[in-house]
Nucleic acid binder design. Structure first.
Length: 802
RNA sequence: GGGGAUGUGGUGGAACUGGUAGACACGCUUGGCUUAGAACCAAGUGCCGAAAGGCGUGGGGGUUCGACUCCCUCCAUCCCUACCA
């Protein structure tokens, strides 16, 4: 028997060779470039299955593209700032930087053991000042461009720990560590005007080669809506309340206004009214996350304030509603219970007036469809569309409103009250903020003193207090800032003189970006915004950062996302140790297509391992002999050649345009299964050997992107030469070998398969009909019935309708 | 609450453009090899049925000669929801 497949020594040997050859360090050259980027990881400690899957996909495509003679750039780095480092520091009394660096070291070893072809010479980590100094510069440039401003906004406040909590740190309305009931608090924060780019972020989605569902999610998130801004005068005051609505046609159905509990009017009232004050207190207990606000019980309180309806002149009550979001629209909702689901429920609960003003086929409350206006004075009888236009005209005439385009997208709050993040380069002189100049950068994150735990920078007096009446900004950037431009910095990561350079121009945009579907909105939208803003200040070219996007699904176990809290994680390392990188990579690619979620199953790993062993046993003791004499193939031999070439064609298509690795692997398995036993024997004919060797060569090449170590090792032994690199070229298939004269005709009766028969292509329909009817089983099915109709699909099927 | 997906044998999945449902694997069953096991090899394996045949892609309805694929509706699960990354 042959030597056993020893993945450990093979993988070590091949990886050493790659490293010594510096094979995956990329440089500009004349070939077409291909920048293949996988989302960089947060260094949480060790790789999880999602990482392994993500990075295998990226590596398979990178390796395939290299074989297709593209100049591939595939870098890797670390999204190294963030909350978990602070948590770990507090839990284990480890310095966040040490913790992070240790994790990076470990995860890098893991990535290398998986044989990913990264250009490590461009490695970066966002927690190094060599990275974030440039982020501080970008902030300054954005500030100079008028994209940065300060505004009050809401945070989750833990009154015991005296810290701001992230949404995930609030559990059932309580701080996760202190257990204190959280409070919603308003504080000053830095914002970036992403809304200035709302229209472009929406319109340029169209040209992106991205999955339709991601584009749709972004479109809905940006949420451009056409409607009207309507003003309601407050009785007895000079002020008025302004609302935005997408349905001005329903204005005669307004029965009350609802304002946000955080609206200045509500806060003002609470000062004089105890009931309102206690209602607002109650509202503060719901955490700031939109999902929690929306899912919570709808509560309201009558303010006893009244406004005047601009068209009817009637008075309407003003309520405070906990479902009204301050940061969407104006923080005031005009409630039309007859034609809005939420308003209807609220009106029912608090016994408020419900008045139908739209009529259509669907006559039950609430009727949210458009229709014909009723109970709307002179607008009665108009369609919703007509009425909307006319009502806006009327409001403009009365100076009580205007047409307005509104975006759901809000400006990006980038301040975080934490330690482990990039310091915001601002100082306050007598409380007036001043953004620092490049010469004063970087503002280094202060090191923690030995044995001290991370606390928000605001509590670090040494850092904050520069002089009397001069303080440093103590907030850090949202970590989404760090990840919004790293794709560009990779191209110049080794340049400490400039943020970007001529390599940036060469490599951008990213040709393929691969990452989890969970980033479909935030990260991808922020990065798109950054690119456009960087473009407008002249730092990068092009309108979009990521030309093509591949979103991979979750890795699940027992139907649930693998997570520490559920205790259903599976550590990939044990499988790398036991089966080797090639098997783990093969398993990951074989078990489900990239965009779908993947259900982890250990027994399938066995299957992947078995297949590689079969390849090993087939190839390891065989040599590819050059045959000089002319070969004459039999029909059976040509069948194998046809299988080899058609498999190659299929695999190429699966890699290139479908990213369908599981079917590519299945096809290679089919080809291996298809090889007749006698071709493998020593006394096989030259023709048989040729066909076998062709199948082996193709298989090794086709499998190389997925299982590179074993394929490269076997390729070299098989070809007895180290000069012919497996990576040098992708083979060509021969169409003349693939094409066949015969095909299997499917014969149906009333759409059901009743027979199959092999016939020559290009036969006349009449002939085919005759042959088909002649088939015994078909004859039986037709019986005495007359054939009413014949459906004929060329080279495929014939269907008799009786 | 809103937005986006997914649902096919015992399991992961295939069917790419409306045209053979279940490719390729895992598992299982039987046999071979073996002192035994592992590994490996061979055959079988959607469900019901003795067979003929019928049924079958989350449930219900529709379009079509023909539907996993298109339309309507209901259900279940997952992701995102702006401070997890």
């Amino acid at each position: 028997m042959t030597d056993n497949y020893n993945h450990k020594s093979i993988e070590r040997q091949i990886q050493k060779k790659w490293h010594e050859e510096k094979r995956y360090i990329s440089q500009k050259d004349n070939r077409e470039k291909y920048y293949c980027l996988s989302m960089f990881p947060y260094p949480s400690g060790k790789l999880h299955m999602g990482h392994v899957r993500n990075y295998t996909i990226g590596d398979v495509i990178s390796r395939y593209k290299r074989m297709k003679n593209f100049n591939v750039f595939q870098p890797m780095g670390w999204d190294a700032f963030g909350l978990p480092a602070e948590n770990a520091a507090i839990a284990n009394k480890i310095n966040p930087r040490e913790w992070t660096n240790k994790n990076i070291e470990n995860m890098k070893t893991q990535l290398q053991s998986l044989g990913f072809s990264y250009d490590w010479s461009k490695e970066l980590r966002t927690c190094d000042s060599s990275y974030y100094r440039w982020e501080q510069l970008i902030f300054k440039k954005f500030y100079d461009a008028g994209l940065v401003y300060r505004k009050k906004s809401l945070v989750n406040w833990d009154p015991i720990d005296k810290t701001v909590l992230a949404n995930e740190q609030v559990i059932d309305g309580k701080g996760w560590r202190s257990g204190a009931k959280i409070e919603i608090k308003e504080i000053d924060q830095w914002f970036i005007k992403i809304t200035e780019y709302a229209d472009e972020l929406l319109s340029s989605l169209e040209d992106l080669d991205w999955p339709e569902n991601v584009k749709l999610m972004q479109k809905n998130w940006i949420g451009k809506s056409f409607g009207a801004e309507i003003e309601y005068k407050i009785i007895g005051q000079k002020k008025s309340l302004v609302t935005f609505t997408t349905r001005p046609d329903t204005i005669f159905g307004v029965s009350f206004l609802a304002i946000s509990p955080n609206h200045s009017l509500a806060i003002g009232l609470a000062k004089k009214n105890k009931k309102i004050a206690s209602f607002l207190e109650k509202c503060k207990e719901t955490k700031a996350a939109e999902a929690d606000v929306a899912k919570g019980e709808k509560l309201g309180i009558d303010t006893k304030i009244e406004v005047i309806h601009p068209l009817t002149g009637k008075t309407l009550p003003v309520w405070i509603g906990n479902f009204v979001l301050l940061n969407y629209g104006t923080g005031v909702v005009m409630a039309v219970p007859g034609h809005d689901e939420r308003d209807y429920k609220f009106a029912k609960k608090y016994n408020l007036n419900i008045k139908p003003v739209i009529e259509n086929d669907n006559n039950k409350f609430p009727n949210v469809e458009k229709g014909i206006l009723i109970n709307s004075g002179k607008f009665n009888g108009m369609t919703s569309e007509e009425a909307s236009q006319e009502i806006i005209k009327e409001l403009i005439k009365l100076k009580s409103g205007k047409e307005l385009i509104q975006f759901r997208l809000r400006d990006w709050g980038i301040s975080r009250q934490r330690y482990w993040g990039c310091p915001i380069p601002v100082i306050y002189e007598s409380e007036v903020p001043k953004v620092l100049n490049e010469i004063d950068m970087p503002i280094e994150l202060p090191k923690l003193k030995a044995n001290s735990l991370p606390v928000p920078l605001s509590q670090n007096e040494e850092f904050v207090n520069i002089a009397k009446d001069m303080q440093r900004e103590s907030d850090t950037f949202d970590t989404f800032m760090d990840s919004s431009w790293y794709y560009a910095r990779f191209t110049s990561a080794d340049n400490d003189k400039q943020i970007f350079d001529e390599n940036t121009k060469y490599w951008l945009p990213v040709d393929l970006y691969i990452g989890g579907i969970e980033h479909a909105i935030l990260h991808l939208l922020y990065s798109r915004f950054f690119h456009k803003a960087l473009r407008d200040i002249g730092m990068v070219d092009g309108d979009e950062p990521f030309k093509k996007l591949l979103t991979q699904g979750m890795v699940l176990k027992d139907g649930a996302k693998m997570s520490k809290s559920k205790g259903n994680t599976v550590d990939p390392q044990q499988f790398i140790d036991k089966y080797g990188a090639d098997t783990v990579r093969l398993y990951m690619m074989f078990t489900s297509p990239p965009e779908q979620s993947l259900e982890w199953s250990e027994s399938s790993v066995e299957g992947a391992s078995r297949f590689l062993k079969r390849i090993w046993n087939l190839v390891s003791k065989r040599k590819n002999i050059k045959l000089e004499e002319k070969l004459n193939f039999t029909k059976d031999q040509l069948e194998l050649r046809r299988k080899s070439h058609s498999t190659l064609k299929k695999v190429e298509n699966d890699y290139e345009s479908r990213f369908s690795f599981n079917t590519a692997i299945a096809a290679i398995m089919e080809l291996i299964n298809f090889i007749p036993e006698k071709y493998k024997e020593n006394n096989a004919s030259n023709e048989q050997k040729f066909c076998l060797n062709e199948a082996i060569s193709f298989s090794l090449k086709m499998l190389f992107p997925i299982a590179p170590h074993i394929c490269e090792y076997l390729w070299e032994k098989f070809n007895d030469s180290e000069n012919s690199s497996i990576e040098s070229s992708w083979p060509l298939f021969d169409m003349s070998i693939i094409e066949v004269k015969e095909f299997e005709l499917i014969i149906q009766v009333n759409g059901k398969v009743r027979g199959k028969v092999f016939i020559e292509k290009n036969m006349k329909e009449d002939e085919i009909k005759e042959i088909s009817i002649g088939v015994e089983n078909v004859q039986k099915s037709i019986g005495a019935n007359t054939i009413k109709k014949v459906i004929f699909v060329k080279d495929k099927l014939i269907n008799f309708v009786i």
